[in-house]
Design a protein around this nucleic acid. Structure first.
Lengths: 189, 189
DNA sequence: ATGGTGAGTGAGTGAATACTCACTTGCACT
DNA sequence: AGTGCAAGTGAGTATTCACTCACTCACCAT
């Protein structure tokens, strides 16, 4: 409780590291296909200790998804702050750009896709719903944009996920260009 | 080859039944989480025989995804035929409605979500890309709509998937209504 | 010094499951 | 009658993986 550890990092620090490792590891192959061992290795820790801090794989995955949404919110806020005038569309546009940069490394994007796929697990579905709620209410309030604009923002974010998972952005064909046209400017969630 | 079986259904008929069973079974829990046994049981067949007709689980899954895209194309075409005048937007609208009805049973929708999640497997990613290509080029040619309209069609289809997987359409809260507003009229893919 | 406590792990266990194979059955043709 | 062949299966095997547990070690308060 009141010990101040020096040599050993305490449990909270470890939890942080594990969640971060989980985010990347689960993003790689998804909830079912990623063994907890992969997370442990990435965190430089024994698998047994991962289970001590996160009693089930499910809880570990959920923590990673939660972290993902937190990171999105932070990114959107930072993007919003770059806009000086309060124009709703300008802020939305900036947020879209910020999100596009955030998902450039794929982890943030893929873990959402995997969470959506694993949403038959009630707790995971609830986490997704909670994350979506956070983003939507935040974007609506912070930008003051119309309902239609916010909905469109989310929809094109989903399109962005599809484009990335199917790799069509580096494809050159006509139909692919049609789908990916201008996506850098609208993505979210 | 030239045998005409009566009592025993031949392999092709079985393949059909298995693909149909796979579509539903995989839609339930996804690629990784669905054992091939679940497909076999649903098809009323032994697991060993499923493996005889589909040498790997991956091939079985891909066959199911392919079937899903075929069904979507058929549905879109049927919807298009209900429109008498050739107005692009009217056809798109009808297609959206047709798709919305199609995914009412969730299987067609969920298997796409699961396939997207499993798209780190190259063959699955390729199948998704192929399906998307089919839909996009078909919709573009059949409706003659603008690139923007087609892109929007796909984007709102993806939004539709998000709404369904998170169950927010039966949620009543303000943010949820914002996201789900009018979705019955725009979904695709 | 010593006993208590939190950090951390090695070595399991049991269940699930992708895939195999030797086998049976029943039809078609001779 | 009997042979060949496609349809179909029961009973495995080998592996992977979520989760457990008995343990060690370093530090601290007394």
């Amino acid at each position: 409780m009141k010990h101040t550890r020096t040599n050993l990092s305490d449990a909270d620090t470890r939890r942080e590291a594990i969640v971060e490792a989980a985010l990347v590891a689960f993003a790689d192959a998804g909830f079912q296909a990623t063994p907890v061992t992969a997370v442990a290795v990435r965190a430089g820790i024994s698998q047994a200790y991962v289970f001590k801090l996160f009693p089930t794989k499910e809880e570990l995955f959920i923590a990673a998804v939660e972290r993902c949404f937190t990171r999105i919110e932070e990114t959107l806020e930072k993007s919003a702050q770059t806009v000086s005038n309060g124009d709703a569309d300008a802020i939305l546009y900036a947020m879209g750009d910020g999100y596009a940069s955030l998902i450039a490394d794929r982890s943030i994007l893929m873990i959402q896709v995997h969470a959506q796929s694993a949403s038959d697990v009630p707790a995971i579905r609830a986490t997704m719903r909670g994350g979506l709620k956070r983003i939507v209410t935040y974007v609506k309030q912070r930008t003051g944009a119309s309902d239609e604009a916010v909905q469109r923002f989310i929809a094109f974010g989903q399109l962005c996920h599809l484009i990335t998972t199917t790799d069509i952005d580096e494809l050159g064909e006509d139909w692919a260009r049609l789908v990916a046209r201008g996506i850098r400017h609208v993505p979210a969630i």
